[in-house]
Structures are given as C-alpha cells and as structure tokens.
Amino acid sequence: MIPGSFAYHRPSSVKEAVGLLGSLGDDARAIAGGHSLIPMMKLRLASPSHLVDLVGVADLKGIREDGKDILIGAMTTQHEVIASDLLTKKIPILSETATLIADPQVRYVGTIGGNVANGDPGNDMPAVMMCLNATYHAVGKSGERRIAAREFYQGAYFTALEPGEIVTAIRIPTPAAGHGYAYEKLKRKVGDYATAAAAVVLTASGGKVTSCSIGLTNVAETPLWAEEASKILTGSALDAATVKKAVAAAEAITSPASDSRGPAAYRTKMAGVMLTRALGRAKARAGF
C-alpha cells in the first residue's frame, strides 16, 4: 500500500497544466481530489512519474448559469455540489447522487471533474451526466473541444480524452422546471460502489411522459445510457406493463462483471429493480 516515487507539480492556470502534461509525456497524470488516483497508486495499479495537481487552478472552480445551461467547473468538489443552492434548485439529481458517493470525508476532497474523467464504471456521476445529456469541456495542447458525455466512455478507464487533455468544465442543459428525477443505488455499505444504480430524469404533462432519459451505473465496462428503455417510456403513463417492458430493455444492455457484490445475473436484475424504483420516485416528483 505504498506508492512508487513521483514528482509533484502544481500549476496555477489551465494553460500551464496542459503545458506540463504535454511536455512531461505519458508518465504524467493530472490529479484532482486524488480519491480515485491515490488508492490506485497505493496498490501500484497506477505508477505515474509526475503528478500535475489541478487544485491550484482557480479557473476550474465554480458553478454558474450560462444561458440555458449550467456550467460546473471540474474542480468543484462533490461536497460543493451538494451545498450549491443553484444545483439543488435546478438539477437536484446531482446532489441526490453526490450524497450517495462515498462519505463526507471523500466528498470534501473528491471532485466532480475527477469523478467523470476517471472512467471507472463504478463512478456514479457519469451515468447521471449521460442521463442529463451533459457535455464536457476538454482542453489539450490543440485547444478546447466539447465532448458529449454519451460519447465519452469507451471502456473501463478508457475515455475520449486525448493524452494530456483535461476536463475543465461540465455543461448541463438545465432540465425543465418541475421535472421528475431520481437516482437509486444499491450498495453494501457507506463508501461502496454500486452493485447497480439507475438515474432517471423525466418530464410529464397530462398524465403522460413527455420526455425520459435513463442512465445506469456499474453494470457494464462503461456507464450506460438506456436509450431504448427511455423511448419505450416516452408517451406512456408509466403503467406497470410499460415499465416492465422498459426495464427489460434496460437489463438487456447491461453486461456486468461478477464480483463480490454478486454474480452478473444478479447485478443485471438489480439494475432493473433500481430502475423500477427510480421511475416510481421520479413519477411522484413529476406529480403524476
């Protein structure tokens, strides 16, 4: 549980950080809260020679509205997500999710940028970002680009980021006022990654679903956006038969690993149970 040796860098601007990552090469890693990276270094599953700490980059902090979107700086901690009045009001699923991540100690330090950029299918925020159709702002040596969360995750710890590129902010289209939402997570204890979890955001009018989006956590190599299930539910009254059909469609796209949380078949079933429960709560919140 002792990491290998590394050099430590603390840039104060995005430019400097990207410059360092570019010049130090493949052996350099950005570090944000360190609550995923440092455990991996202690297990020597990661042995970067250089750590570029983003904590001193003021531009990466803050939560603000930008037109129809909300922008969250990558270095915003999970605790700040929970504490934000703006987010609690406009995108309450974020604080509901954040409170299910680890424990207060981890959340005071762990960042939302690190959570989405890490690429671990166990992280909770990525599925929520896919559900919300968020976009990540990425900056690398060739400048800034935007990557849709739904296109970002390519495999376990394998994302659309180019070497040396960092996520600077997360852009989320503000959901309609009065939308229904829920994040349901089955875990064994505080600080555990999900056995399975489901994120739901939906809008309704006249007793019918007008839009619906579903994300699933830790039931495949990557977080999942359950597009088919979302479609099945749109236009429905969330009646039992349709929900059952949608759940089956969501379960069909999972391919979890068997681990000590349970065998793959169980975890698939739990994705279905979490989705059913999330739909129930989202429905109540949407007021129908």
Binding site: L186, R188, T195, G262, P263, Y266, K269
Partner: peptide, 8 residues
C-alpha cells in the same frame, strides 16, 4: 447473509 446470497 449479504444481498446477493439472500436474493438468491
């Protein structure tokens, strides 16, 4: 008696 064993 963890979750998956009980579920099983």
């Amino acid at each position: 008696h963890d979750n998956w064993r009980t579920w099983t």
